[in-house]
Amino acid sequence: MTGPEPVVAREPQGPTGEVEATLLTYLLRHADDNLVLSQRLGEWISNGPELEEDIALANVGIDFLGQARAIYTHAAEVEGAGRTEDDFAMLRPEREFTNCLLVEQPNGDFAQTMARQLFFDAYQLSLWEGLSRSQDATLAGIAAKAFKEARYHFRHSSMWVIRLGDGTEESHRRMQDGVDAMWRFTAELLTGDAVDALMVDQGIGVDPATFAAVWRSRIDDVFAAATLRVPDDPYQRMGGRTGFHTEHLGHLLSKLQWMQRTYPGLEW
């Protein structure tokens, strides 16, 4: 299935223009991942199963938001068209967002949230470690910090998946249900495309397929301790990277972007 063209810079300048245009696309997809998941985690604030988790999810979310802001700001510099981090976050419609489908899925119960989080954290550990060696110095700096934060995120989500999986009959059932619901969105994390390929060529990006095996072994280790099984269903859903989203992103963005949609140009 083909999709719309990836988001490109407004004024490519020639051969280096193509690299910059692709870099912009590359940066935006990772910033979008973080922004969308940050928004999802924010939905738990005041709704957490216990006070400590209310705070924990908010803190993980704020790490994601800070990383997203730094990447959007860098993307704006790369694009050089005068846009800001706010423009990227608040003024792009759904088809221009290139986050992976996993992060836009609803929170569901706490177990589903932890399943989504585990899969994403295991992915970001490898992603940020690789990107900390990027030839793009700004991206490398952001990634080096994000990697350290991802270690705490992964510790948190894996601990919960183990506790819930190897818990009561109900917690185990909910945890397995959460895994089953989120599994179909994991292949997209670990599948490289033409954008990744060009970025790898330039020494800027990482091909996620190169760490698919590491990702899987992290998940297998957690599942073994959690007495959980990988779902049998081979069905995988993709499309986020080219702007084809599940229904959920529309609702999420309508809340995130509500102020600008209702009062265009509103400023503090």
């Binding site: 705070i55 908010a58 510790r155 948190h156």
Partner: peptide, 13 residues
Amino acid sequence: VVSEFGSTACKAL
């Protein structure tokens, strides 16, 4: 440890 994420992102409880 009660929680790895405390009153601020940099602190645990």
